[in-house]
């Protein structure tokens, strides 16, 4: 159609139709319109086009979109995928990683002489028929280990930091910054243990609200101050003490850590404690930390899902 018109010309014509050119531009364009029939025709064509579009019959909503009280319920705060699948996979992966981390720790000689017990596990896990006592024994061991090992403490601190970083970045993704007063108020020193306890009591239902409402404060606090109470969060990653929400519970307690693939080679030959290479410590830390992060993710997403 208008072979010789540029995009700039069209922009000028379009803005002219909307009365959006400033005085100088308008006068310049009107001068050109007098001299250039092609430009003039194009203006009229555009004018007719806009009139046709504006003349389309108005569309009405087919129904009312007013909100019911249920729709109006509380906001989502995080951009995590809060599907059941995500929580379940995170929890399963967390169990796997923590299990592997423990195996690595135990294989260098832990506080109990557990190697034999763990060595039994692969076979049992394969058959998926682990007896209940053995399962709880393993979990207790898990808990004790986490509580007892300074490495685990470090791992948890790391997990906490990572989890809060995740939350924080998720919150920043949330359009503009949330009101500054909410974000900046420093929490009293006691706040963290409180939250942790509420986390542990998760299934009671009130927690969802509390955690959600405090998510901003929580993530902020963890980043800016009061990092000194990692033990307060111990119940969270330990499978034994923490009672998981229904969605995740099957994965958390039902599936034993799929250790068989990795355990066979180190397990049969019990290594004397002193012979353990330092690399295994680092490996255990990494595994436990990653497990902690995933478990936190599973927890948070479950809470959010239950709320919405």
């Amino acid at each position: 159609m208008a072979r010789d018109l540029t995009h700039h010309d069209y922009e000028q014509l379009s803005a002219y139709l909307d009365g959006d050119l400033d005085e100088a531009e308008r006068l310049a364009l009107e001068a050109r319109l007098r001299d250039e029939p092609a430009l003039r025709r194009e203006l009229e064509a555009l004018r007719a086009t806009v009139a046709l579009i504006r003349g389309l019959p108005p569309i009405k909503a087919p129904r009312d979109f007013t909100l019911t009280a249920q729709m109006a319920r509380p906001p989502r705060l995080l951009f995590l995928p809060t599907t059941a699948a995500f929580s379940a996979i995170s929890a399963a992966a967390a169990t796997l990683l923590v299990g592997l981390g423990l195996v690595v720790l135990l294989s260098r000689g832990g506080p109990m002489n557990a190697p034999l017990q763990v060595a039994d596990e692969p076979a049992v896990a394969l058959q998926m028929t682990m007896p209940a006592e053995q399962e709880t024994a393993r979990q207790n061991m898990t808990a004790t280990l986490i509580a007892a090992t300074p490495l685990a403490g470090m791992a948890l601190e790391f997990a906490e930091a990572a989890a809060s970083a995740v939350q924080d970045s998720a919150l920043q993704g949330e359009d503009q910054a949330a009101p500054a007063d909410a974000m900046l108020t420093p929490a009293p020193a006691g706040a963290l243990p409180e939250v942790a306890q509420e986390n542990a009591a998760l299934p009671t239902g009130t927690v969802g609200r509390v955690v959600g409402a405090q998510a901003e404060d929580l993530s902020d606090d963890r980043l800016t101050g009061t990092p000194a109470q990692p033990p307060a969060f111990l119940p969270q990653p330990s499978a034994a003490q923490f009672t998981p929400p229904p969605g995740a519970s099957a994965t958390l307690t039902g599936t034993p850590p799929p250790t068989p693939t990795l355990t066979p080679s180190p397990m049969p030959t019990p290594v004397p404690p002193q012979a353990a290479p330092p690399a295994s410590d680092a490996l255990a830390v990494v595994l436990l930390a990653a497990g902690g992060v995933l478990l936190a993710l599973a927890l948070v997403t479950t809470v959010i899902r239950r709320r919405s």
């Binding site: 379009s14 803005a15 555009l46 086009t49």
Partner: peptide, 12 residues
Amino acid sequence: KSRLSRARAGVR
């Protein structure tokens, strides 16, 4: 402005 003019020219 740019998108609007392109859109109008496109419909035209």
